[in-house]
Design a protein around this nucleic acid. Structure first.
Lengths: 210, 210
DNA sequence: CGCATTTTTGATACACGTCAATCTCCGTGG
DNA sequence: CCACGGAGATTGACGTGTATCAAAAATGCG
């Protein structure tokens, strides 16, 4: 979603040995990664965030899942030969082919990604109920990842529209809430090269309620 | 949840050969199946519906997932040795140990249950956004399972409270919507032995909007 | 038959959705 | 360098779909 991101794909480590398989691919925020029904590989999200969309019966994509670093996406193609969801980059992200090692003897790896998938699904479910403020702060916490000792972290958020789709709110509501969090001092806009000024924040978790 | 269901467990096929492993276990509506943190097996839902709950930081369980016939639950215990969610019966249900065959060489089976888990998660996400009426009819459609040629099926629904937890609505809202569906002729109460009169319906899908 | 649980119904309030205008940020081209 | 235009974000005013609170009715069970 989020309209206009150009399809800038790039090989992340172009300096690698020529015979080695590609290590990872980078996608700009908003860029499509793969489309439902298309054939392709499974991927591991190395950095950034990815949005999965199910088949909205018309052309409008409907949000299905969120994937963060460590998550596996597109594994259904190993079974069906094609993707069951569309994927697009919520923020700048890097993916690497999965599984990386031997294709067999990965039973435990599958089990791990199954467990991870279920935990992520439970988090998503939680993000779509309860009051709007908690949904948005919940998403921010999940996307922030590692938090330093002083309860501080940096986040790059998706567009307001994408946050709205994830939390089942409206973009205007999300905008109001994020502005409110800024004014409360929980979020500080941070300018990062190449990232929209409205999407990169320093978060102060000590002020978070939950 | 739905409070009071007693813990009536029973071996479903008590007449089986004595040396054969247990085939399946039955649970009454509302009965707890296993608790988060406890050790145990993975199960396949054969009939009925199961609710999974994550760790609500106080004692109140918070809805995490819904499992229907064919779904695998508790597979995380194969990895961690204990359950990551609590499970309880939404309706009368039967479970059988999983995997049933040889414990190894199940790679494909894991892949299938991973794909199924992701599809189910996407359905759940869809049930928690949009207008209340569509959420409830969406859940009814999912729980109805097989639909006959004349667009008719039978469903046994969970309590209003459980439906509310699944759809992120309030129990009063759910009650109003179901009554509305009854009066519109989309739902007909059906009395079934052993099931609460307010939870068993014949559904007429031809009158459903979506 | 009487109690506990679940469901239904009503009245009212508010959080969020909706509609619409404006503003900021950026890239593009004159 | 500045005018222009588009995408995303912000803000305001207003409406409404659900939540909330409260009480009665139905259902199931001992």
């Amino acid at each position: 979603m989020s309209g206009a991101g150009q399809v800038k794909k790039a090989n992340a480590d172009s300096g690698a040995k020529p015979d080695a398989p590609r290590r990872s691919l980078a996608f700009a925020a908003g860029a499509p990664i793969y489309r439902i029904g298309a054939p392709g590989l499974a991927w591991r999200v190395e950095r950034g965030s990815v949005r999965l969309d199910a088949d909205g019966h018309s052309s409008e994509a409907c949000f299905a899942s969120l994937s963060l670093p460590g998550d596996i996406i597109g594994s259904e193609s190993m079974l069906f030969g094609s993707y069951a969801f569309s994927a697009s980059a919520l923020t700048h992200c890097e993916l690497s082919p999965w599984p990386e090692g031997a294709p067999a003897a990965e039973g435990n790896s599958l089990l791990r990604s199954l467990a991870a998938s279920q935990r992520r699904a439970a988090e998503l479910v939680a993000l779509r109920g309860g009051e709007a403020l908690k949904r948005v702060t919940g998403l921010i916490r999940i996307m922030a990842g590692a938090v330093s000792e002083d309860c501080t972290a940096n986040v790059v958020l998706p567009t307001r529209k994408d946050i709205a789709d994830i939390t089942a709110l409206r973009l205007e509501t999300v905008s109001r809430i994020i502005k409110h969090l800024e004014r409360s001092g929980m979020l500080h806009p941070v300018r990062v090269e190449g990232v929209h000024a409205t999407r990169s924040f320093a978060v102060n978790f000590s002020q978070f309620a939950g």
